[in-house]
Design a protein around this nucleic acid. Structure first.
Lengths: 260, 260
DNA sequence: CCAACAGAGTGGTCTATACCTCATGATGTT
DNA sequence: AACATCATGAGGTATAGACCACTCTGTTGG
């Protein structure tokens, strides 16, 4: 596609204004600082006010700026990351400052079990890569993880042996993980899980089943079993759904407050 | 001064267009159907095209509509709710088609225990409303829930007895829940919990601790204990973090596909 | 029969201007 | 000093056109 991003100095004046404001917010200004007024930008760029507003509105909806009528437009605080992301075990451990290690328990292509086939949307018995691993944090067993990926999506995925990161491997094989859904539930560990996780019998585990979607449907199904005493999930919660009425764009006046 | 906030029903033409489109999308049209063109709306409402576009753009950013250059504007599929929301037990059960019932186990104002005080950011020993409830779905015990709310925030919160919905009560007392954070972990139920949840000993439970924030800090701390065999949490996962550069207005055409 | 083209229709960008509402600070007035 | 008023300047809404880019479709040529 010649949708060449870079260059094209001419195209789209509002993008110029936008880029200018983005740079300004990122480099020159601090959170809460006002950006130039719409009329000022109008003159600086020699464009009409509607064009300036177009640029600003885009940044407002992206959370970069916020507008307050009668006062101005301000650099908004980086908004809390309200989305739980498709992170890997390694990333999660890194965030916690722990070292992650892994032992592959099983690896290879198998015929998809019924449930797996259903979740992945492939015909039962279709070939799927299968990987089962024990994951440790600072050497201590933390979880057992099992994953299935349709062979048809990435035939050579396991050619170099089981990859250290399935997500990375999927990416390099043209199957970028786009989004996912995960279900969490508490359960009692099975005997085998107790062994692999080095737990006593009747211990609680957190079971997570995850379906990862790519550009064209489900790319992976995985089931993880975490030690209940060593793992917990943090979930940010967005405000309750507001019916419909726009009424308040609610600029969330981050400002004010603690300024002496 | 009568800075009358309310009123202004008529004003704002773009809201009329917006409301019309919302109704249209909700009642008349199916997902994927086109809405009237911008020029058509211009004439129907006797407004300028910029006004129509203002209304449409708002709905696009809300996910109600999507635009495709050269083709038109369409009712978009209800987008996946990528945010887990501050929902109440009642709402959760309703979504599952179950009837929710509640038994209040304990209710009143108490001195905040140390941990509660710390989480809520009040001084230890400060008065907090306390509510402990058993929650059932279709009559079967589902969870035990305990909540603490600083009395200072809403002194009369429990004046009419423990409210059926704490979130609704907070709202009516001027402490709108804005966002929250929840931590989930698996554990073994205590003896008391086993009794209240009608479980045998050594059963797994999902423990959720939630801090709810209002406009001005934490408004509530709650701890829930769900039956592991009857409750699970669904979490949508956003794509791995994209660097910074928006570059891409990325209209995300979503369309195509099923159109014959 | 199929490819190429032209036209119509849709959203995308942009201008130049007008008047409104709201927040703030300077100026008066009490 | 304390309060009221007003001017200023910010964003908010709205107009009436103009031309561009893209998608379709029906027509026309080969």
């Amino acid at each position: 596609m010649p949708t060449e991003t870079g260059s094209q100095p001419t195209s789209h004046k509002y993008l110029k204004v936008r880029d200018y404001l983005v740079a300004l917010a990122a480099e020159e200004l601090a959170v809460g600082d006002p950006v130039p007024s719409e009329r000022a930008l109008t003159q600086r760029f020699g464009v009409s006010r509607m064009t300036v507003r177009h640029a600003i509105d885009a940044l407002v909806s992206e959370g970069v700026l916020e507008k307050v009528q009668g006062r101005g437009t301000f650099v908004s605080a980086p908004r809390m990351d309200f989305e739980v992301r498709l992170s890997t075990f390694g990333e999660q451990m890194q965030r916690l400052g722990l070292s992650a290690s892994t032992t592959v328990l099983d690896s290879g292509a198998v015929a998809a079990p019924a449930e797996v086939a259903a979740v992945l949307g492939v015909s039962p018995g279709a070939q799927v890569h299968h990987l089962r691993r024990q994951r440790r944090a600072d050497g201590k067993p933390m979880a057992i993880e099992e994953a299935w990926i349709p062979v048809a999506l990435a035939p050579r995925l396991f050619d170099d042996g089981p990859p250290p990161s399935l997500y990375d491997a999927l990416r390099t094989h043209g199957q970028d993980p786009q989004w996912g859904e995960e279900t969490l539930a508490a359960d009692i560990a099975t005997r085998e899980e107790c062994e692999l996780l080095d737990m006593s019998e009747n211990s609680a585990v957190l079971r997570a089943t995850r379906r990862t979607h790519g550009d064209d449907g489900a790319v992976m199904f995985s089931r993880s079993c975490f030690r209940g005493d060593r793992y917990q999930v943090w979930v940010p919660l967005a405000p309750p759904h507001v019916p419909e009425k726009p009424s308040r764009p609610s600029p969330a006046p981050t400002t004010s407050k603690e300024d002496s």
